[in-house]
Design a protein around this nucleic acid. Structure first.
Lengths: 154, 154
DNA sequence: ATTGATGCAAAAGATTTGCAAACTG
DNA sequence: CAGTTTGCAAATCTTTTGCATCAAT
């Protein structure tokens, strides 16, 4: 699935949800699916503004909420004070390791882990909507460039 | 380990960290270890104030940070806009399910899951400091009293 | 006495919202 | 056209911080 298709999916899902497809929303979707970073609202706003001055902060926040609601974007709490997001179309679910030494966000996925999570929710009588696993780690020398901590930690 | 012991541990760890043990800190620790809810800073402040008017908001925030730093309290992001906390002395690590229908936070723990998490971090060359697994679920009729959603969801 | 801790109020950030104007279907 | 969506700024909410004062060691 390439970027055009992904944006088409976003459009379709929003329309199906009774929403309108505006120029701003398309712009935001384009930027979201063009990046592979974990961005927060402010960063997304800045990226959108670079290509289209008409995108406002409020619209970015509203669009993020809308995309989350239709499941094309997921948020994660990295502990830096803002929520960060990533698009989730076209790749299987993955989890995150957040390195306290260098601030990197490392993605990983593990089939066994996924099975275990689903099984636990089911065993306890719940329907799992989504799940978020965060490992806060410290990198060892080989794995890490040894950069200074990034951003404020709390 | 009863509540007195738990508070003694908090005191010891803070003192070992070079901190002073003040009346406010003792009060806050007492309240934290007396509750079994997942409280946020504002709620903790209100509880403390009920028994001791001298506890201020700033001190509550500072004490939460201190307790987190010495590992007697852990925070979790429930998606309601504030961080929630729980004390972690005297019971093994557990994860959380957050029910989107009724707002309940259900705790669970699974040894196999724990082993898997640790193994993954190790395999990828990291040292795991802590981990947080959150399953966002929807309860089925039997499991849920069917209460209305609690708090704002985002 | 020294020095860290506290309370207060102000500041800082992130996110949400009211409303008139602009745009979509 | 009718009804959404937008931009803006103001409002909200949570958390942090500066600083004079207080209290623990």
């Amino acid at each position: 699935m390439d970027q055009q298709d992904e944006i088409a999916v976003v459009e379709r899902r929003l329309r199906e949800g009774g929403h309108r497809w505006t120029q701003q929303r398309r712009r935001i979707a384009e930027v979201v699916f063009a990046t592979h970073e974990h961005f927060n609202a402010e960063e997304l706003l800045a990226l959108c503004r670079k290509v289209d001055r008409r995108v406002s902060r409020a619209t970015v926040y509203r669009m993020i909420a809308a995309m989350e609601a239709v499941g094309v974007v997921e948020g994660l709490d990295t502990g830096d004070g803002s929520r960060r997001f990533e698009h989730v179309l076209g790749h299987e679910h993955h989890d995150h390791m957040i390195c306290r030494s260098c601030g990197r966000i490392v993605e990983f996925s593990d089939a066994k882990l996924e099975r275990q999570k689903a099984e636990i929710a089911h065993r306890m009588g719940f329907t799992m909507l989504r799940h978020e696993l965060k490992l806060v780690v410290e990198c060892n020398d080989l794995a890490c460039p040894g950069r200074a901590p990034v951003g404020k930690r709390r």
